[in-house]
Design a protein around this nucleic acid. Sequence first.
DNA 1: TATAAAATTGTAATAGTTACAAATTTGTAA
DNA 2: TTACAAATTTGTAACTATTACAATTTTATA
Lengths: 138, 138
Amino acid sequence: MMEQYVKILKEHAIKITPQRLEVLKYLDTHRNHPTAYEIYEALKKDNPSLSKTTVYNSLEVLQRHDIIHSLTISGSELRYDFRTEVHHHFLCRKCGKIIDIDVGCPYMDEFLNGGHRVEEVHGYFKGICKECLKKKGE
Amino acid sequence: MMEQYVKILKEHAIKITPQRLEVLKYLDTHRNHPTAYEIYEALKKDNPSLSKTTVYNSLEVLQRHDIIHSLTISGSELRYDFRTEVHHHFLCRKCGKIIDIDVGCPYMDEFLNGGHRVEEVHGYFKGICKECLKKKGE
DNA sequence: TATAAAATTGTAATAGTTACAAATTTGTAA
DNA sequence: TTACAAATTTGTAACTATTACAATTTTATA
Ligand SMILES: [Mn+2]
Ligand SMILES: [Mn+2]
Ligand SMILES: [Zn+2]
Ligand SMILES: [Zn+2]
C-alpha cells in the first residue's frame, strides 16, 4: 500500500518518514492540485499530531527532488501536483478548480528562448470551465 | 507628459487621479514587471503621502479594465506588466529578473482546451538567464 | 542497542495583500 | 463658479500563506 511511495523516496535517497509517505500518497490519489493547507487538513484526521510545518517541509523536499511540482497559477497560494511531465493547467474563475490540459510546450528550446536555459515550463489558462459555462446557460 | 495616461483612463471611464496616473506611467516606463511594493517605493519619493493601499487599489482598477496585467510567475508576489498582448515570461532563478519572451500561444482555442472558455494565457519559463549563464562560465 | 544526524512539532515571525472607516478629491449639475 | 454626492485616498489593522527556529522525537546505521 505504501511500498510504491517508499520506493520513490528510497530511489531519491530521502529519509523515509510516515509524514512524507502520507503527503506523497495524498498527492498521488488527489490529482486536483491541492494546497498545503488542504493536504494538512486531510492528513490531520488520521494523524492529529501532524504539524503544518511538516507538510510544508515534506512538500519542499519532494519538490527539490522533482518528485512533485508546484503551481503558481492562483497567485495567492501554491498548488501541488503529483504529475511532473510537462502539461498545462486551466483555472476556472467561477468554481476555482484547476484542470490538467494535456499539451506540451513548443518553446522549451534554449535557442527559441534567446539563449536562456529553461528548466521549468508553466502554461496557465484562466477563464470559465466547460461545466460552469453549461450551468450559466440553464 | 501625462496626457497619454489621462487619455487611457478617460477611454475606460475611470476617474482621473494623480495616483492612478503615476502608477500607470511608472508601469509604462518600467517594463521590468515590478511588484506593488517597488512601485510604491518609487512613487513615494515624489509623493510622500502616497499610501500603499492606493497603489494596490490603482493596480486593481487598471487590471480590471485590462489596461495592465499581473503575473503570478514568482509564487510569492504579484508582478505587474504594462504590456497586455499575449506574450510569455522567463524568470531567472539566479538574478531574479523577469524577461519578456515574445511568442504567442498555439493553444488558446476553446476546442483545444476541452471546451473551456480561455480568457487569459500565461506562459512562464524558469531557469537561468543568458547573462547568468555567461557569468558562471567565467 | 547506541548514537549521530535528520525530521517533526509547536509557536512565533514575516511578507504580501485586503478590509475598513475617516478625510479628501473628483465629476457633474445647478 | 459653487455645491454636492459619489468615489478615492489614506492610515491602520487584520488576514493568509509561508518560513524561522528551538526543543523533542525519530530515523538510519553500526
Ligand atoms: Mn497538473
Ligand atoms: Mn511582460
Ligand atoms: Zn468552473
Ligand atoms: Zn539571471
